[in-house]
């Protein structure tokens, strides 16, 4: 008997699956499995004294919505997202426009804006803790301008805004990079044509630049929104959610519930709520972008 000479050809689908396997397996193990575990555990309650865990159905969710601290965290997170996302994107866009102009030293300025990305968030938080101290840089600067000193992180009215400033210091440069790439892709002829038509700088920005960077802008909007839902380090290092819960973002509330209060069931329920919230907000953003696309 001679062995069959015919070489078996694997189908393209099998080959594709083989190439995709590492990514798919890690997606399953690192992402989908923990998500499933989170959902499953959110239906249980762990008891230290009685021992073991008990199935409680949706009780963890019901308890959360009846809990003043959780409701406050939800509100703070929504306010935070509603303010910081438009703010960061607007500033990144304006900076991107500014730094794509051919001006003296614009590359140096651009690098300076991007620099904070290289600093780990925890280190940035420590740096800003010095800025926000009562006798710190922030108040020295205000004094220089003849303004009264501010409480910053120790005031419930100013703490969230102070965290937003710190995060924007890190984030704006990062998002700007994507927008600069987008702006550089806009063909120069379009600007020339607009100039010939007598368009002002503002008109060029509004009618040429803005519509043509909508794709990178959409990415930045979604990615920025998701990343701002995940803010944790500055809150943990600077305010611990205070004063009076004014900076208690959901991510930090989850951490506190899971690791300091030891209430894992409720923490997992809160994770699921945060995931759903993120999904809804981002879905709405896509809906809006799509409808403006088809116009």
């Amino acid at each position: 008997m001679r062995p069959a000479r015919r070489r078996r050809r694997a189908s393209p689908a099998v080959i594709a699956a083989a190439f995709l396997a590492p990514a798919l397996v890690s997606l399953l193990v690192l992402r989908i499995a923990p998500a499933a575990v989170a959902l499953w555990e959110s239906f249980f309650r762990e008891s230290l004294l009685r021992g073991g865990s008990v199935f409680v159905g949706f009780e963890n969710y019901a308890d959360l919505f009846g809990n003043a601290d959780f409701n406050n965290a939800l509100l703070v997170t929504l306010v935070f997202s509603a303010v910081i996302n438009p703010l960061q994107i607007a500033v990144s866009f304006l900076l991107a426009v500014l730094y794509t102009r051919r001006a003296a030293g614009s590359k140096i300025w651009r690098s300076l804006v991007v620099l904070p990305i290289a600093v780990p968030p925890a280190v940035s938080a420590v740096v800003w803790s010095v800025v926000y101290r009562p006798d710190g840089l922030g108040n020295s600067f205000l004094a220089l301008l003849g303004l009264p000193s501010q409480p910053f992180l120790s005031s419930p009215q100013q703490s969230l805004a102070s965290i937003m400033v710190l995060l924007s210091w890190i984030g704006v440069g990062y998002w700007m990079l994507f927008l600069i790439a987008g702006i550089n892709d806009v063909p120069g002829e379009l600007y020339e044509a607009a100039s010939l038509d007598g368009a002002s700088a503002w008109r060029k920005l509004r009618s040429v630049t803005f519509p043509l960077v909508r794709r990178p802008l959409a990415f930045v909007l979604v990615a920025d929104t998701v990343s701002n839902f995940l803010v944790f380090a500055p809150v943990q290092i600077l305010t611990k959610g205070g004063p009076s819960g004014s900076t208690n973002l959901l991510m930090y509330d989850i951490y506190t519930r899971a690791y300091t209060l030891g209430d894992l069931g409720k923490a997992q329920a809160e994770v699921i709520i945060l995931v759903l919230l993120t999904l809804v907000v981002v879905a709405v953003q896509f809906r809006l972008l799509r409808s403006s696309d088809s116009e």
């Binding site: 992402r31 998500a35 865990s53 998701v226 995940l230 991510m251 069931g265 923490a267 945060l274 879905a283």
Partner: peptide, 19 residues
């Protein structure tokens, strides 16, 4: 966008350890 979103959501979900 959906995959990006899913990645973000899954990242969130992976943030707590099992009891």
């Amino acid at each position: 966008a959906t995959s990006l979103l899913a990645a973000g959501a899954m990242f969130l979900a992976g943030c707590t350890a099992s009891p």
